[in-house]
């Protein structure tokens, strides 16, 4: 099964988190906001000029930058 980066998801697309390759402190922060292996996320929108992404994970909406979102690997689910 091929993995996709969160930053490569199409707008409106869902994915299940398979892997998080961030440095320690950022991984904890992601974890605290619900980014855990096996969780379903959805890319809601992206800001203009390569700006941040809005992602829904569980009951939370968060914004994070493209380059940081690239550290999250997903199995796209449609």
């Amino acid at each position: 099964m091929e993995l996709t980066r969160l930053s490569d998801l199409a707008i409106g697309q869902y994915g299940i988190i398979e892997e998080i390759e961030a440095e320690e402190s950022f991984r904890w922060r992601l974890q605290a906001l619900g980014f855990r292996i096996g969780r379903e996320v959805r890319l809601i929108r992206q800001a203009l000029f390569g700006g941040p992404l809005q992602v829904q994970v569980g009951s939370i909406n968060v914004m994070l930058r493209r380059q940081d979102a690239a550290s999250i690997q997903l199995r796209a689910t449609g």
């Binding site: 961030a22 950022f26 922060r29 992601l30 906001l33 941040p52 809005q54 939370i60 909406n61 968060v62 914004m63 994070l64 930058r65 940081d68």
Partner: peptide
């Protein structure tokens, strides 16, 4: 890295 909640 930037990670902010967008509350309802």
């Amino acid at each position: 890295p930037l990670l902010i909640e967008l509350p309802p």
